[in-house]
């Protein structure tokens, strides 16, 4: 972290001058730092590959006869056909289906990893020490780190959707852009729905990321961050299986993921998605305030 303007601010001494420290440069440095880590690149590569693998695998198992209607697709292990098998490999359902599947564990894992590296990881390698000693307000340190996590969340979601979209276009062209309500959608329609899905998924992942940052600020083991976040998600998903705990479900973050299916319906019903976004924002507020509280009381 050689970009810190330590000399200037120490000399000028006035508050406004210090506030004008080039945050854009800090952000750029942080983001470059994140996307140069090999592990980030490996995970992003995996995320991009999964929709391709799903698409190709489904394309091989479903009757490839071009004119024959897909009909009742092969039934999934649960007896119910998963959506992206019934509608095969369309450029609309494949990206959304992949995003929903990956939102269960893989994408939160990516974000938790970024959150763990951001504070706990740098603490363990001693890189955070420079930040804590430098005259950078702790709030701004948190902003810089959160923007880093946000960038990972956005890039990961966009990568999954784009990879699914491209795979779908290669496999099926613009055929089968059909909503679950049976209406054919224009390419523009599909694109705005996918863009909305990316935005929503980013908000959801930031809910996860904020909790990761809060844990990250209180430990120096990045592994602990990833384990706690994944543990929390798995426990939440187990709790979601019990209908006796209905009252608890609105408080659990993974409740919202299924609302993404509403984007395949026509007209789109935004109620569930809006509720999910609010839920993610609540987690964001809680996580961020805890991370801030922990960070401001941290000693160099």
């Amino acid at each position: 972290m050689t970009t810190l303007p330590t000399a200037d601010t120490a000399l000028s001494g006035t508050l406004p001058a210090r506030r004008r420290a080039p945050i854009v440069r800090l952000l750029r440095a942080e983001i470059r730092w994140i996307f140069r880590r090999p592990r980030t690149l490996v995970v992003l590569g995996l995320l991009a590959a999964l929709p391709v693998i799903t698409g190709v695998a489904v394309n091989l198992t479903v009757d490839p006869g071009a004119s024959a209607p897909p009909g009742p697709g092969p039934i999934g292990p649960g007896g119910e056909a998963p959506i992206f098998v019934t509608m095969a490999t369309s450029a609309f359902v494949l990206p959304l289906g992949s995003l929903m599947t990956l939102l269960i564990l893989m994408l939160p894992l990516t974000v938790a990893m970024a959150g763990g590296d951001a504070l706990a990881g740098e603490q363990s390698t001693g890189a955070l020490r420079g930040w804590l000693l430098a005259p950078v307000a702790r709030g701004r340190l948190l902003v810089v780190k959160s923007v880093g996590v946000l960038a990972v969340a956005l890039v990961a979601s966009a990568l999954v959707v784009t990879s699914g979209l491209v795979t779908g276009l290669v496999l099926a062209g613009t055929d089968g852009l059909v909503s679950m309500s049976g209406t054919e959608l224009s390419v523009g329609d599909v694109l705005w729905r996918l863009a909305f899905a990316i935005a929503w998924s980013t908000v959801y992942l930031m809910g996860v990321g904020a909790v990761a940052l809060a844990i990250s600020a209180s430990t120096e083991h990045p592994m602990l961050v990833v384990v706690s976040v994944l543990g929390g998600l798995i426990v939440s998903q187990v709790l979601l299986q019990f209908s006796a705990l209905d009252w608890l479900h609105p408080y659990l973050l993974p409740t919202s993921v299924n609302s993404l299916v509403d984007l395949i319906r026509d007209p789109v019903s935004f109620d569930g998605l809006a509720e999910g976004a609010v839920r993610a924002l609540c987690y964001l507020v809680i996580g961020m305030s805890l991370a801030y509280a922990r960070l401001t009381t941290k000693d160099g």
């Binding site: 009252w247 609105p250 408080y251 509720e275 609010v278 839920r279 924002l281 609540c282 987690y283 964001l284 507020v285 809680i286 961020m288 305030s289 805890l290 801030y292 509280a293 922990r294 401001t296 009381t297």
Partner: peptide
């Protein structure tokens, strides 16, 4: 002072977040 600030931030953040979650549950 930083300690009280931290407590206030954590307390109000948690309260606001939980209130929001409770609203979606109602």
């Amino acid at each position: 002072r930083p300690r009280t600030k931290a407590l206030v931030a954590a307390g109000s953040g948690i309260a606001a977040g939980l209130a929001g979650l409770a609203l979606t549950a109602l």
